[in-house]
Amino acid sequence: MNANIIQARPDFAAIAQWIPHGSSVLDLGCGDGSLLRYLRETREVKGYGVEISDANIAACIANNVNVIQNDLESGLAVFENAAFDFVILSQTLQATRHTEALMKEILRVGNEGIVSFPNFGYWKNRLQVLRGNMPISRDMPYQWYDTPNVHLCTLHDFEMLCATHQVKILARHVMSGLRSVRVLPNWRGSSAVYRFKREPA
């Protein structure tokens, strides 16, 4: 099943490459627990997920993944400071309302954060906007009136948030579908994964 998951979710492999064997991981908005299951099977991580949706809670439990039913928007009070080696927010950042507060919570609870999100600055998105429409793509497959995404951003935007919030970016992996993108990432990347930590004061 691992190969299938990577096909469906290319960011999973990008995330997994940064996670050493046996790490402790918190996956925020973990969906049906596929990433945690993948990390457990390939990296032997000790993992927990956080989900709000009833269907996903039942699916995580079916996947034998630890999951805590909790609304990300209300914070992560159930988790202690520096409780995890990594806190992951995969393809969820853009759908959070209190994005700035959540970034702070990620860095409170985890030693490092890993965030993946669709790049609004991807050239195909820009082209659709130039043509006069909100973009719809593989990474953002929603109509503007029916989207969970409320805080879409470009790679530059995310990096500016980090720069102004004492967040140090440790690594960046930009993708177009399954392929890695190195040249002109904010134009050519359809999604990105960042690894970051608190800037030492």
């Binding site: 000790k46 995580c60 993944v65 805590i68």
Partner: peptide
């Protein structure tokens, strides 16, 4: 129930928590 969950998380025990509407 969340108090119990917190104590289990503190001790890094396997735990799942469902809050049924």
């Amino acid at each position: 129930s969340r108090e119990l969950v917190r104590a289990l998380l503190h001790n890094k025990r396997d735990v799942s928590y469902a809050e049924i509407a």
